[in-house]
Design a protein around this nucleic acid. Structure first.
Length: 571
RNA sequence: CGGGGCGUGGCGCAGCCUGGUAGCGCGUUCGGUUCGGGACCGAAAGGUCGGAGGUUCAAAUCCUCUCGCCCCGACCA
């Protein structure tokens, strides 16, 4: 492919709107352009990357027994009303009306549409199992789209759904898909972890996220230093070792802390270690107020709290409710003497002489002791796991913290959707039953962004071979016709050998071509220059490596072919 | 949705506080010199200053409203 014929509008300066590396580079390097917030056009090389990713997904999923279909992007509202998600999904679901004022939605996911497809044509256990996937644009009207392709509103997602006659078979397929995902992300050249995850609004009982490790990731995960347990912090279990409750060390006494509501303010003001503070948070669970206590340096894991209470809905109390419960503004709450249920984290019980709010504006208390001052408190695991915590699954291991970008998610759904959608089949015993389902998603465009987050430097992108829009770039350094001649011959030889090659034939100075080549991030670069040509050699350089090598002209094509194959793991 | 910020040629920005009719760098076009890590010289094209209303002799600049975009937070198959 000739560079001069491609639209690759690179920019010398970073666009003002972009903050994270992948966003900056995708725009600077001419891969995409913004159309509206969270909505982008893919340019030629951007689309090539997406097609590469899609192809890997297709190959691995089909190899695993899944079949590709394509459902509509616009779904009739009836389907979403059937599953009750039309009401429950919230403003993220983009709703539209047609000319007859009938309701439709732009699909953010396709459980309903897929169930609808299957229930019409699949009636017997003999037709199961079935695993159907599609690669399609999705739309989610995010409150805050950000970071380019990482969290767009319109994005490309692979979503797959499997249908089974038994739970066991659905579980088998869950593991089958899990294995396929591992192969997929390995082939994409990504460093990732499969982590246990919360099932969220989609429901179900078993779930893993595939997280690409990157500092800029939105998710926090922990991974055991010793065993293979890894989990999203939303989900991560903690060792059930109740630290011994200590005896009270001091009498409770009020201290004046004018205007120091926030935990960091009080810590700074009182000059005590943060782990001697008790954070008191008021929540409303199914309409009733509760108090949750964690150490000052910890966070409440709301999922754990919800589970302990057995609540359907849980949210932080408003300022008004906090005042009703504590008699003080936010920032001065304490659990002592309150009439609502108190749930305390294990660590809070170990504090002998803590500091917490006095339930009085501008006052805290010292000498707080949970067992003495709030005897009715339930002591449970309530906090978010953090780096350094002991592993819940093995002895001696501890958690290492990572940031992750979620690129894939597998769910065991059970009959959450098949039941309300009446996606039933006739079993061998003559009984009609809802199908047991699994669902499996991969963010296609997000993979591109994640790959860049993991593979870039100051000069630009460093694509893994499998995702690069081209595998080799040829640059001529100079205008002599013999350089172009050699370059053209090499281009032909590589194309014949099945190597994807970009030939920069532009009438530009060598420096400019090199800069663009680094920016675009093609893994292998060949420079045709008169210095080397005089000796019958070409300069071969790997993106990201400092020194170049000189290879005899005749050997270059086969050498490149070999390296590409090697990088793709097919050597 | 709460908080903060920004909208000025294609891109990055200055000008705004203290109103006087728009400027810089990059890019683009033309001519010339250059030619292996974003060259130089000379010419040129290109802007309803996000939009609407208001104040004023006069508005990019002041006021009101509105739209868009970015960041932090809350939220999230």
């Amino acid at each position: 492919m000739r560079y001069s014929r491609l639209l690759i509008p690179t920019l010398k300066e970073a666009p003002a709107e972009a903050q994270v590396a992948s966003h900056v580079l995708l725009i600077r390097s001419g891969y995409m352009r913004k159309v509206a917030a969270g909505i982008y056009s893919l340019l030629p090389i951007g689309l090539r990357v997406v097609k590469k990713i899609e192809q890997i997904l297709r190959e691995e999923l089909i190899r695993s027994g899944a079949q590709e279909v394509l459902l509509p992007m616009v779904h009739p509202a009836e389907l979403w009303i059937e599953s009750e998600r039309f009401q429950k999904y919230g403003p993220e679901l983009l709703r539209l009306k047609d000319r007859k004022q009938a309701d439709f939605v732009m699909s953010p996911t396709a459980e309903e549409a897929m169930c609808d497809l299957v229930r019409r044509d699949v009636k017997s256990y003999r037709q199961l199992p079935l695993n159907l996937f599609q690669i399609q644009d999705k739309f989610r009207d995010e409150m805050r789209p950000r970071a380019g392709l990482m969290r767009g509103r319109e994005f490309i997602m692979k979503d797959g759904y499997s249908f089974h006659s038994t739970v066991e078979d659905a579980q088998r397929e869950y593991h089958n898909m899990f294995d396929a995902y591992v192969r997929i992300f390995k082939r994409c050249g990504l460093e990732f972890r499969a982590v246990e995850a919360d099932t969220g609004a989609i429901g179900g009982s078993m779930s893993h996220e595939f997280q690409v490790l990157a500092e800029s990731g939105e998710d926090s995960i922990v991974s055991c230093s010793k065993c293979d347990y890894a989990a999203n912090v939303e989900k991560a279990e903690l060792r059930r070792q109740a630290p011994a409750a200590s005896a009270p060390a001091a009498a409770i006494e009020e201290v004046h802390t004018p205007g120091k509501g926030g935990i960091t303010d009080v810590v700074e003001f009182l000059k005590e270690p943060i782990d001697q503070f008790v954070k008191t948070l008021v929540y409303v669970a199914d309409g009733k107020s509760v108090i949750a206590l964690v150490r000052g340096d910890r966070d409440v894991n709301e999922l754990k709290l919800k589970a302990v209470i057995g609540a359907e809905k849980l949210e932080l109390a408003t300022e008004k409710t906090v005042f009703e419960v504590t008699g003080a503004p936010i920032g001065f709450a304490g659990p002592q003497g309150r009439s609502v249920p108190v749930f305390a984290d294990l660590e809070v019980a170990a504090i002998a002489s803590g500091i917490t709010g006095a339930n009085k504006k501008d006052y805290h208390v010292r000498g707080f002791h949970l067992g003495r001052d709030v005897p009715a408190a339930k002591v449970v695991d309530l906090r978010v796991a953090a780096g350094g915590d002991n592993c819940a699954r093995c002895d001696g291991g501890s958690y290492r913290p990572y940031r992750g970008i979620e690129v894939g998610h597998v769910f065991f759904l059970g009959i959450k959707y098949s039941k309300p959608m009446k996606c039933n089949f006739l079993d061998g015993d003559g009984q009609e039953k809802p199908m047991v389902m699994g669902c499996y998603g991969i963010g296609v465009t997000r993979i591109a962004a994640a790959a860049i987050e993991q593979n870039h430097d100051q000069d630009g992108i460093k694509w893994p071979m499998a995702l690069a829009p081209f595998q080799v770039e040829i640059v001529t350094a100079g205008k002599e016709p013999e350089l172009a001649e050699v370059a053209e011959k090499l281009e032909q030889a590589l194309e014949q050998a099945g190597v994807e090659v970009l030939y920069d034939d532009r009438d530009e100075r060598a420096g400019g071509k090199f800069k663009d080549a680094d920016l675009i991030g093609i893994p292998l670069r060949v420079t045709v220059g008169k210095r080397g040509l005089a000796e019958g050699k070409l300069e071969l350089k790997t993106r990201g490596q400092k020194e170049a090598e000189w290879v005899a002209i005749d050997a270059v094509a086969s050498e490149l072919q070999r390296r590409v194959a090697q990088a793709l793991g097919r050597a």
